[in-house]
Computed example of a mutant assay.
Amino acid sequence: MLSKLSRFVAIATLTTLTCVIANPTSAKPVSDSKATETEVIDPVPPLSMNVLVNQAFFTHSGTFFEDSSIAGQLNLILGFRSFPMGSFPENNVASDALLVNAIVVDYFRQLKEKDPTIRTYDLPNPFDTSLKEGLDYRR
């Protein structure tokens, strides 16, 4: 009975708060001075593959300079940065490896889907047969 009552009180409280906080009648219209101003945002160039892999490689494990500080040394011993697993060096390297693997697999998938596969004939070469097929080999 208590859980049903507490569930009802929680739902009633949330419903009341959403009606009070997000009341559409209290919304104020946008003034015309702000509507005519436009903000120009410079596009961010996409990262190259080597920069992206380097950033992913040091995401969890950090650089030498981060690990050589006092907080970095305590983290190596106690592993307090990531709570459930612990940020021990082995876990950091495994997390970085998973991230780099996901990036590389996605990169190659995008390369494969970008252009159709081009199939060409092999060039003729003098090595069409094996040495074991020759008559001189059996002597």
Rank of each mutant, 00 (worst) to 15 (best):
M1P: 01
M1N: 10
M1F: 07
M1C: 06
L2D: 07
L5S: 11
R7E: 13
R7S: 14
F8R: 11
F8P: 02
I11Y: 06
A12N: 09
A12M: 04
T13I: 13
T15G: 11
L17C: 07
L17I: 15
L17Y: 06
T18C: 14
T18R: 09
C19H: 13
I21C: 00
A22N: 10
N23C: 14
N23V: 12
N23G: 11
S26D: 09
S26N: 13
K28Q: 15
P29A: 15
D32V: 14
S33H: 10
K34T: 15
A35F: 10
E37D: 08
E39M: 03
I41T: 08
P45G: 10
P46L: 02
P46S: 06
L47E: 05
S48C: 05
M49T: 07
N50T: 12
L52F: 09
V53M: 04
N54G: 03
A56G: 09
A56V: 01
A56C: 00
A56S: 09
F57Q: 07
F58W: 13
T59Y: 05
T59R: 13
S61P: 00
G62I: 07
F64R: 14
F65P: 03
F65W: 14
S68C: 12
I70C: 09
A71S: 08
A71Y: 06
G72E: 08
Q73H: 10
L74D: 05
N75Q: 05
I77H: 03
L78C: 00
L78F: 12
S82C: 05
F83I: 12
F83W: 11
P84A: 06
M85A: 10
G86S: 02
G86I: 00
F88V: 05
F88Q: 06
P89Y: 01
P89S: 04
E90G: 08
N91F: 00
N91D: 02
V93F: 13
S95R: 03
D96G: 08
A97H: 01
A97G: 04
A97F: 01
A97T: 01
L98M: 08
L99T: 09
V100A: 01
V100C: 07
V104R: 01
V105F: 04
V105S: 15
D106E: 14
F108N: 03
F108Y: 11
Q110W: 13
Q110V: 12
L111N: 02
E113P: 06
E113L: 13
K114A: 15
T117N: 06
T117Q: 14
T120P: 03
Y121C: 05
Y121Q: 03
P126Q: 09
P126H: 04
P126Y: 02
D128M: 07
S130F: 07
E133F: 10
L135M: 08
Y137P: 00
R138W: 12
R138K: 06
R139N: 13
R139C: 08
